[in-house]
């Protein structure tokens, strides 16, 4: 039952033309990475890695915003959810099945983007061996895994928002805002806490603190700098980030399940 729902969700995403458009866009961005590398005189590998990972993050984000949200919104609007819920399918199982299907779609996309990123970096290395430096493909892989974790969490959040928002546009806005805030709170908090910021009002400091603890910290999953600069990885820190992502996703999905159980499907 769970597998059937997950599979249908995956198929729905796969057969959505937007996914192909986004994949094509990601391909174009990777091509641009190669082009831009020709203009850099040194640390080509670092720049190319940064661009490739940014392209992958952007493409994965577009899939959450334009495919994931659409799938859920259509389910409610068109009442296609009736088929499953008129059977002995618990609402919790339905929602989790939908999430797993979207997670599978994201995983397939990230795998494709990983192949594209790796191919791009190898090509750039081939073209500019003197200026490439060294880039660890293992770190690039790891960075993609963490992009995937980010998207799992964002997908869970978009599902929660779709249950409270009045329209798919509001869900889109809430998800985008959460992404933007969650990606920047760590940096802003560090800035606020640094020396020479006594002229910042306590209210602003409090707001930043609240945002930092309330919104998910997407910066924990950002390994672009680590991969680009070949920095040493702290396995404890990465383990914590993965657990944080998993825990936060489960918590968000649990709240979504509670809301979905109570929802009237008129």
């Amino acid at each position: 039952m769970l597998r059937a729902i997950a599979w249908i969700t995956f198929l729905e995403g796969l057969r959505n033309k937007a996914v192909y458009g986004i994949s094509l866009l990601a391909g174009l961005m990777m091509t641009f990475t190669v082009a831009i590398s020709s203009m850099i005189m040194r640390d080509v590998g670092k720049v190319a890695t940064d661009f490739a990972l940014s392209s992958a993050t952007f493409a994965a984000l577009l899939v959450v915003l334009f495919v994931g949200i659409t799938i859920l919104a259509r389910d409610m609007e068109r009442k296609t959810v009736y088929l499953a819920l008129s059977r002995a399918v618990p609402r919790s199982r339905y929602l989790v099945g939908r999430f797993l299907g979207l997670a599978l779609l994201q995983s397939a996309l990230i795998l494709l983007l990983l192949v594209a990123s790796s191919a791009t970096l190898l090509l750039v290395k081939q073209l500019y061996p003197s200026f490439f430096g060294s880039v660890s493909l293992w770190l690039v892989c790891l960075a993609h895994l963490f992009i995937l974790q980010q998207m799992f969490l964002l997908t869970a959040l978009s599902m929660l928002f779709s249950l409270v928002a009045s329209s798919s546009f509001v869900t889109f806005l809430l998800t985008t805002l959460t992404w933007l805030i969650g990606s920047s709170t760590q940096e802003v908090k560090l800035l606020i806490e640094s020396a020479g910021t006594d002229n910042i009002s306590p209210a602003v400091k409090l707001l930043v603190q609240l945002a930092y603890y309330l919104f998910p910290n997407f910066a924990l999953f950002d390994l672009k700098a680590t991969a680009a600069h070949g920095l040493a990885i702290n396995t404890t820190s990465l383990g914590f980030s993965l657990l944080y992502g998993l825990g936060y996703s489960i918590a968000v999905l649990s709240v979504a399940v509670v809301l979905f159980r109570r929802r009237e499907l008129t």
Binding site: I8, L11, N16, K79, Y82, S86, A88
Partner: peptide, 18 residues
């Protein structure tokens, strides 16, 4: 209660990608 129930809604939308 719905283990052996089949339902046809009014004006059903079905997954048109299938």
């Amino acid at each position: 209660s719905r283990a052996r129930v089949g339902y046809l809604p009014e004006n059903p939308y079905i997954y048109d990608f299938l």
